[in-house]
Write a protein that binds this DNA or RNA. Sequence first.
RNA 1: GGGGUCGUAGUUAAGCCUGGUUAUAACGCCGGCCUGUCACGCCGGAGGCCGCGAGUUCAAUUCUCGUCGACCCCGCCA
Length: 584
Amino acid sequence: MRDTYCGTIRKEHVDTTVTLAGWVFRRRDHGGLVFADLRDVTGIVQIVFSPEISKEAHERAGDIRSEYVLKVTGTVRRRPAETENPALPTGEVEVYVSDFEVLNTCKVLPFQLDDEDIGEATRLRYRYLDMRRPEMQKVFIERSKAYTVTRDYLLSKGFYEFETPLLTKSTPEGARDFVVPSRLNTGMFYALPQSPQLFKQLLMMSGFERYFQIARCFRDEDLRADRQPEFTQIDIEMSFVDREDVMNVNEGLIIALYEALKGRKPPEVPFPRMSFAEAMDRYGSDKPDLRFDLPIVDMTHIFQKTEFGVFKKTIEAGGAVKGLVLKGKTLSRKDLDVSVETAREIGAGGLVWIRMDADRALQSPTVKFLSDVEKSQMVTLFSMEPGDVLFIMCDKKLRVSELMGRFRLYLGEKYDLIDKSLDKFLWVIDFPLLEYSEEEKRYVARHHPFTSPKEKLAGFNGDYDAILANSYDLVFNGVELGGGSIRNHRTEDQAEMFRLLNIGEVEAADKFGFLLEALEMGAPPHGGIAFGFDRILMMFLGLGSIRDVIAFPKTQKGSCLLTGAPSRVGPRQLAELKIRTVSD
RNA sequence: GGGGUCGUAGUUAAGCCUGGUUAUAACGCCGGCCUGUCACGCCGGAGGCCGCGAGUUCAAUUCUCGUCGACCCCGCCA
């Protein structure tokens, strides 16, 4: 139908005849001369309808409207001097139309493709139009490239690509499952996979040694700017490896993706590492953003004998007092009030601020409750200078770290401390194996129940919080890109884990029996990792939302504005499934 | 489950706090003019359930409550 793509035409094509196909992006009708920008997937070229070339084509050009689909034949000409457009790669040339065909007309669109400020709801309702925009096309062309880079890299490292079932078994741990009724098995349900976790482990038991899958995963949890109910993971599993092996191979993958998408090398290789404990202590987060420093400092020792009620009570209850100092910014009383308000919104019980004024005196509503020793220790600990503001919170140890971590991010954003030109990768390692679930009143796996501990657990009966896992997360600019672990490959180790999780033998056999059975039949040592593919794209392309890298994403309430999913199904469908809905 | 922001021509916004006019603008759309534009320009025109429902009021786009939808966050997301 065509012989040349719009965006590829250059001055080398001058005097040749080309046949193009594409959409009318913009039209500039001067009466005697009509210009239009013709757009295809490669870009834009200006076409000219002139009566001197074809009276007939020029006449018909008056009826052309935005987004009409055209097939155009014409001659490439150098643009006259002073009319070149340096903003376009094709700006030195234009195509004089000798003949054209309207392949399709177009209604007036619900929004203009060149308008930058269209509301997201409208864009999602007409996503296919939204995706016509060159900047959106660029994202999905990059996404396509990322699939290829991933496959090329992993295949070159001896990995085999697999597909695993989407209709699978509901598992008790972890995220809420999406559930699919089985017509052939009345009252039974499949679950969509939260990840291919168990299958990839089984493939290790099959002896493939290196597995990967670009896998769709489903989690029925509430959405966020970086969370969709269905998303894509680069899922990886390897046999006969330790933690270092997995991290090394996957660091290579991430570097390859970074280079492909950002066009430069990562700033720091190998990626630095930090223990979970240090991340929590210093940055109040298991995914610290290292683009700015602002460390959190434990101040509990200063207040061991304090008369200040809130600190005193917290410390007596085994909690901690933590602070961080904001330097070199001038904060007004209003700013300080706002920060207190923000701390409350973050979930803190309160926030103490202490500002050093020009004559080195400490100003704060709290200062009168503090002793001179406490004050001077604080000043020394934080090397406080005039203008500096010290922010302090107290709470249970882990809780106060988390709160300060959130507050640190708030300050970083608000006072522009984050150097957005930096990219900071970080491996976080030595996570706790378990964490206590207030909701379930028991310990649950922090990563997942198949994660192996760093030390053998046999007969363990000590502090559950102190057990470290053989796991690792990769963090980029404060966002978790992925994580994984070395798994338990021996039945007795896995049984020990279930014991700690308070999952009985009967329940374990019911839910994961097939895996436990497989472990008994020569399971090799193995471990793996999974990366959020969408998140990697979002971060490396510098976009603000995971929806920006998913072709047809869901809204925060999980609906698709384009198709109207989810929707009711007919009574016949429900009857076949023997499902009745209840309204209450 | 909870907190917050928003909803006004096709689109993006202003007006609302402090109730009363023909609800304003830009882009888009329609008609006309225009041979060097590229966000073309100039002249003219059409276009509104002010998300929906209730309440307060002589009077509601404006105030109150509810509801629906979009977004951000907490909880949740092994």
